[in-house]
């Protein structure tokens, strides 16, 4: 069963902690991905650039509308994601609990809908 873990981070809290702590957190997350890979539970994972670079795209009446900014204005913003392949929700919760960003944020766990016929990337 595949789950997507959406990592919501408090960007300001990490800024306060400084670049050293941020680097350490990323190292911790990379270690986690390798442990997952050893158990064949890893599909993919990546942090995202800070949300300041986000843009929003809509198509209305056939016209493209591009605006600035993230979709939701929340203190914690989507800062990265994992896609994992585990047995059940408890295992997904166990992985989410090890995400270093949890110290300043939250992880939302969403089951991925598997549809046939998608290409391999």
């Amino acid at each position: 069963m595949k789950y997507m873990l959406l990592c919501y981070d408090d960007e300001r809290a990490w800024e306060r902690e400084g670049p050293g702590a941020q680097r350490a957190a990323i190292d911790e997350a990379v270690t986690l991905t390798h442990e997952l890979a050893e158990k064949d539970q890893y599909v993919m994972a990546s942090p995202l650039h800070p949300q300041a670079s986000a843009q929003l795209v809509q198509v209305r009446d056939g016209k493209r509308i591009v605006t600035d900014g993230p979709f939701a204005e929340t203190r914690e913003v989507l800062g990265g994601f994992y896609v994992i392949d585990v047995d059940d929700l408890d295992q997904a919760i166990a992985v989410a609990s090890r995400h270093p960003g949890l110290r300043h944020g939250a992880v939302e766990i969403r089951p991925v809908m598997e549809i046939p016929g998608l290409p391999n990337g």
């Binding site: 069963m1 047995d87 059940d88 929700l89 408890d90 766990i109 089951p111």
Partner: peptide, 14 residues
């Protein structure tokens, strides 16, 4: 069913 909450007794740790 859809999020697959397991039908099990939690581990010692949990």
């Amino acid at each position: 069913k859809s999020a697959k909450i397991p039908y099990q007794i939690p581990s010692r740790a949990d």
